Amino acid sequence: MRQTKIDDFLELERRIEEEVNRSREKDKILFQQAKLASLGEMIGNISHQWRQPLMEMNSIFLPIEAKITLGQSLENSEILEAIEKLNSITKFMSDTIDDFRDFFLNDKEKTRFKILEQINSIINIVSTGLKTYNIKLDIIMKKNPEIVGYKNEFSQVLINIINNAKDELISRKIENPYIKISVFEENDFVIVTFEDNAGGIRVNPLDMIFEPFFTFEKKNGSGIGLFMSKLIVEKNMQGKLKAYNKNDGAFFEMKIPKE
């Protein structure tokens, strides 16, 4: 009897070890799939990230082209403003390539940067697209904290979440659409939150939105944006990225340690 119990225990132990190893293998496969999606299929993902900046570039040229066509005069300040925006957009597009290329490398250097610096760089890129659809963007900065991390990857997280909110606001034809970004400190953490009034995340369980290749109510979605965002925040910045439904829309909370 005692030998039987020992044999049963050993068999159970063996099965547990097999399940753990099988689970680890699944994690490795999933990680490799994510790596292939962001690196091996880089062109498709870059096109997804570049769609908004390219639209912004087009929207910058349209009023200039209209004035030239109608024989109206162009102020130097208008041309200089357009050039400044174009420089910002092309820099972001170049940085996007670097981000995808270096996403899973371990020899990247972390830098100390201010949150507002990155938010401003993103606003420069998305502002025209938001204005086109009358989407109001509010930025509430209780402080302008510094964090240590990969600032270009941090920008990718910002633009992914903003673009997701924008897409939902447009597709659902929301009246008086808005996106609100709040930045504050809480103990040893920097908190960045994103709110919108697009009606909330219609997925159950809600955390499915962070799974690789998951798309919902999006015809041209790649299903990689939020998955990558969570990886960047939690793997590369040792923080947390969570999503909730709050009031009349989605609520994303990014929690990053100061050091």
Rank of each mutant, 00 (worst) to 15 (best):
I147L: 04
I135L: 14
E56Y: 04
E109A: 05
N106C: 00
I122R: 03
T69Q: 10
T111E: 15
L70Y: 14
Q52P: 10
K108S: 09
L62R: 04
P145V: 00
I29C: 08
K28R: 15
Q52S: 13
N120D: 14
K35P: 04
E81A: 05
M55R: 07
K131V: 00
G71Y: 08
I122V: 08
I43N: 13
E65A: 01
K142E: 14
L30I: 13
S47M: 03
M55V: 03
G44F: 13
E25S: 00
T96D: 12
A37C: 05
E81V: 06
I46M: 02
Q49I: 03
I60R: 00
G129W: 00
M141G: 04
I89H: 13
H48I: 03
M55F: 02
N45Y: 14
K131R: 10
P53F: 02
I79C: 02
K91V: 10
P63C: 04
N144K: 03
F31S: 12
L30M: 11
A34Q: 14
A82W: 00
Q49V: 02
Q49K: 09
L116D: 09
N76M: 08
I139Q: 15
R51Y: 11
T90K: 00
L54W: 11
I119C: 13
K142Q: 13
V126F: 02
K142N: 14
S94I: 05
I43S: 15
A66V: 05
E146D: 05
G129F: 01
I89Y: 02
F92R: 01
L74A: 11
N106M: 08
E146Q: 07
S73P: 07
L62E: 15
E65W: 04
L36E: 08
N144P: 01
K108E: 12
E56K: 09
K28A: 14
E75K: 12
E56C: 04
L80K: 15
R22V: 02
L30H: 09
K114S: 14
K143M: 00
I125W: 05
S38E: 12
V126M: 01
D138F: 07
K114F: 05
P63T: 06
E78K: 12
F103W: 06
A34F: 15
Q118K: 06
N144M: 11
I29M: 12
L105E: 13
L39P: 03
S38C: 12
D95H: 14
D138V: 02
S121H: 00
N58I: 07
S73Y: 08
G71H: 10
